[in-house]
Design a protein around this nucleic acid. Structure first.
Lengths: 252, 252
DNA sequence: CAGTGGTCTAGACCACTTA
DNA sequence: AAGTGGTCTAGACCACTGA
C-alpha cells in the first residue's frame, strides 16, 4: 500500500492541460497491463484495494476501470472481479471477424496454409507497417473455405521486430489464432484494426486459388492491426469471392 | 414538478427482471424524444431539474443521460446543457458515411438525381423493409461523383407509410440530406445502419452510368437504416467503382 | 455572475459469485 | 458469510458558457 504516486489531484498548474484524476489512474492501470504486470485473463485487484493503493476514492477507480472496459481492455464480472481482456472469449468473441457466410449454417471458415516464411520487409511493407529499412517480417498466405468451398485468400505480413523464437511462431500458427498467439506468447494485445475495402478483379493467382475466372470481382480487405501501444503489428490483405459470403458491419 | 411516475426503486418483486433506476429513467427520457416533446437540437432540462421531476438523485439522472450520449442520442456540452442530437453536426458529422476518396483532397462527392418516384413496394422491398403488402415507397436513384468522376450509383427505397405530404419530400430531396430531411420534417431519427458488402460485376446499367465496361468489379453496399423506434426506414444499395475510392472502417 | 455539465468523495445498500 | 462489482444518494467543488 501507499505507493504514493504523485497525482496532480486538483492542484498545481491552473490551466495548461487539465487531466481528471480518473484519467490519470486509467493511464497508470494501462501501464501495468503494458508492462506485463497484469497479463491477459488475469484478475485485477479489487476497486477498494486499488483505491487505497492510489489514495483516491473507490468511485474514481471505478470510473477509470469503466473506461477501460468500454475500450475492451478489461472485462468486469459482478461478484467475481475485473479481468484483463483476452482476444477470445472477451465481450464479443468475433470482434474483428466481419466476413460471414450467406448461409448462417456454416459459421466458421476452415483454413489451409499455403506458405509461411520470414524475410526482409519490402518498401511497401515498411510503409504500411511503419518499419525501418532492413526490418524482418513474417509472411504467410492462407486459403479459407466456407462449407468446403474456397472463397478467401489472405496474405498476412507481421512485424517480428520484437518477437524472438521464430520457430515457435512458425510451428504454432493455427487458423484464426494469430491474435491469440501474439497475445499469449508475446504479450502483444491487438486492440484496434483499420480496414479499407475495395472491389478488384481476380488475377491469375487469385483465380487459381479461388477457382474463379480471371477478372472475377473480388472483395479486397486491406487491414492494419494495431497493438495496445499503438504499434502496427500486422498488415493483412484478404481477397474474397463474395458470391456466397459478405462483409457485415453495423454503425451506430 | 412532482410528476411522480411510479418507479420501482429497489422494491417490489424481488427477482423477476431487475431494472436499475437509471435505466428506467433513460427509457422515460427516450420516450420524451420519441413523442416529439423534445425535438432534435432542443435543449433538455438540466440534470437538477430532471432529478427533482423524477424524484431521484442527480447522479442517477446523470447516468441515464450519459448512456444516451454514448448512444449518440443526445450531446452534452459543459457549461451549456444537454441537447437532443441532430444527424448533422452531432458528435461525428460523418457517422454513416464510410465511402471516401483515395485522394484526401476531395472530401465530399457531388450528387445528381437520376429519378425520383413513388410506387407500391415489391416483394423484395417488403421483405427488406418489413412492410405489409400494398405499402407505398419512395424510390430514388442517384449518381455520385468524386472530382467530377462518376463512381457511385445509389438506389434508395424509403418507407413512406407514416410520412404525409409527398410533394414536399420530392421537392426537398437534396444530396446527402435524406437523413436530415427525415429528421427535420418527419421527426424520424436514424440511429443505426446495418450494411452488407460484396463485390459484384457491373451490368449494362451500371456500366453506362459509371462509364466502366460491363463486368467491371464494383463494390456493392446493401444498407438498412433503422430509426429510433427500430423501424426499418430505408433500404439503400450502392454500387461503387472503387478504383479511386474505398470503404473505410475501424474496429475497436 | 449564475447556471450548466464534469469530477471527486464518502457511505449505504443491492446483486452476484464462491466457498 | 465474505468479497466482488453495481446502484443510489448527498454534498462539495471545478471547468466552462453566456449574459
Amino acid at each position: 500500500m501507499g505507493k504514493r504516486v504523485t497525482l496532480e489531484k486538483q492542484a498545481m498548474d491552473p490551466k495548461p492541460e487539465f487531466q481528471p484524476l480518473y484519467l490519470q489512474i486509467k493511464q497508470l492501470l494501462i501501464q501495468r497491463v503494458l508492462t506485463g504486470e497484469w497479463r491477459p485473463a488475469q484478475l485485477l485487484p479489487s476497486e477498494m484495494k486499488l483505491a487505497e493503493e492510489y489514495d483516491v476514492s473507490q468511485g474514481t477507480v471505478r470510473k477509470a476501470i469503466e473506461e477501460m472496459a468500454a475500450d475492451n481492455l478489461v472485462v468486469r464480472q459482478q461478484g467475481k472481479g475485473t479481468f484483463v481482456a483476452t482476444h477470445r472469449s472477451s465481450s464479443q468473441p468475433f470482434r474483428f471477424i466481419r466476413l460471414v457466410s450467406d448461409q448462417s449454417s456454416d459459421r466458421h471458415p476452415t483454413t489451409k496454409f499455403i506458405s509461411i516464411k520470414t524475410g526482409t520487409a519490402t518498401a511497401t511493407e515498411r510503409e504500411r507497417l511503419a518499419l525501418p529499412s532492413g526490418a524482418r517480417v513474417l509472411r504467410t498466405e492462407r486459403q479459407r473455405s466456407f462449407g468446403g468451398h474456397p472463397c478467401i485468400i489472405e496474405r498476412i505480413v507481421i512485424d517480428i521486430g520484437g518477437l524472438p523464437d521464430l520457430d515457435a511462431i512458425l510451428d504454432r500458427l493455427r487458423p484464426g489464432s494469430i491474435y491469440s498467439l501474439l497475445e499469449q506468447e508475446y504479450r502483444v494485445m491487438i486492440v484496434r484494426v483499420v480496414e479499407e475495402l475495395r472491389a478488384v478483379a481476380a488475377d491469375k493467382g487469385d483465380a487459381k486459388l479461388l477457382d474463379v475466372p480471371v477478372g472475377h470481382p473480388l472483395l479486397e480487405i486491406d487491414r492494419i492491426a494495431l497493438s495496445l501501444d499503438q504499434r502496427r503489428v500486422e498488415w493483412r490483405v484478404s481477397r474474397c469471392d463474395s458470391r456466397f459470403l459478405h462483409y457485415a458491419v453495423e454503425h451506430t
